[in-house]
């Protein structure tokens, strides 16, 4: 790897890091604004025009708050919890292909940090690590509510990871690769032969299971049992204050962003958009438009996350487990069987 490639990779890493942080910041703003509109309110509009500086004000407030570590908390783990949460949230975006190739001068590079051939497995590994941040934080707080929230988070993530993995297996049977870039490339164009190329159209049931599990994995409503305000007073981050609390919130929103990107890449064509090969533009321009298309898809998913949060009430815990074990897992297995039959007999 030459020095130029290294610089490009570093630049890409920095850009993706900053973009995920900014999107996470503005997701909090979008959350409050969309919630307000859905409830016929105005929403935050004091900081700057339309309140667009609100996330900065919130961040500044978070930094200036007093840092409290409870006396009976285990100090090392108490700090390790939010650090791990934000770390695992940030590294998930490394394997996502943000666009096609870009050529600058003599250099041609992929808009992706790491095109590893087990990209999908990497994402699953990172997602399953994500629960440790919550578990460690909840346990280290030495507070019964936090512990309950942490236990809920752990069992919820374990339950839904199975269904998520099974829904992905059906996808892998059709794509035949674990590399995120290859999966995205296979969905190039919009219409091929006699059917859509996007995986959501060939795997509708798998997509449905995946999106339900994504809601559960990111602890978003209606699966926000680990942090439900009414029963567990914010659950695993009850004892957290200041920027450590901010890290937990941030990691939730970055997770939302990353899982939106994963869903867009796996099921909605990633950076591909309809008629991309018929515009007659140079490859660089198509790549840039592809990045924009991917981000539009991601924002649509983030909006959907928020929209669902302000529509559906929270599940009861036994209903959550019922849905995970008795509905989603059998459905995912049936999906695998159906996919296998279709592949064997129709192609």
């Amino acid at each position: 790897m030459g020095i130029a490639e290294l610089l490009i990779k570093i630049a890409l890493v920095v850009i993706i890091f900053l973009v995920s942080l900014v999107i996470a910041m503005y997701s909090t703003y979008a959350e409050r604004k969309v919630a307000a509109f859905l409830q016929d309110r105005v929403g935050p509009d004091r900081a700057g025009p339309f309140g667009i500086l609100q996330p900065l004000a919130d961040g500044g407030k978070m930094f200036l708050k007093e840092e409290i570590i409870p006396t009976n908390a285990s100090p090392f783990l108490f700090i390790a919890g939010p650090s791990l949460a934000i770390l695992t949230a940030c590294i998930g975006s490394a394997v996502i292909p943000w666009g096609q190739r870009l050529t600058i001068g003599a250099y041609t590079f992929n808009l992706q940090v790491a095109d590893i051939n087990v990209g999908l497995l990497y994402i699953f590994g990172v997602i399953s690590l994500g629960v440790y941040g919550i578990m460690i934080g909840g346990w280290a707080s030495n507070n019964k509510y936090s512990l309950l929230g942490a236990v809920r988070a752990a069992s919820q993530n374990i339950s839904y990871e199975i269904a998520m993995g099974l829904s992905i297996i059906a996808l892998l049977m059709t794509t035949g690769t674990l590399s995120m870039r290859h999966i995205a490339e296979q969905q190039s164009g919009f219409w091929h032969g006699h059917w859509f190329t996007w995986n959501a159209f060939s795997q509708p049931l798998g997509f449905l299971i995946f999106i339900v599990c994504a809601f559960a994995e990111t602890n978003r409503s209606p699966f926000d049992l680990p942090e439900c305000e009414t029963e567990l007073i914010a659950g695993y981050h009850t004892e957290y204050s200041s920027m450590k609390m901010g890290f937990y919130m941030f990691s939730e929103y970055i997770n939302m962003f990353v899982s939106s990107a994963v869903m867009a890449t796996l099921y909605f064509g990633g950076y591909n958009f309809p008629f991309m090969h018929h515009l007659g533009l140079s490859e660089n321009w198509v790549s840039i438009l592809g990045v924009i298309a991917l981000f539009i898809k991601i924002f649509a998913f983030i909006f959907f996350f928020i929209w669902v949060r302000w529509t559906i009430p929270r599940f009861r815990y036994d209903q959550l487990m019922d849905l995970g074990w008795k509905v989603l897992i059998p459905l995912a297995i049936a999906n695998i069987v159906i996919t296998g039959l279709v592949i064997t007999f129709l192609k």
Partner: peptide, 11 residues
């Protein structure tokens, strides 16, 4: 809920 999204706010 999406119908309310496009409604004029009451506040």
């Amino acid at each position: 809920t999406i119908k309310h999204f496009f409604r004029k706010p009451v506040t």
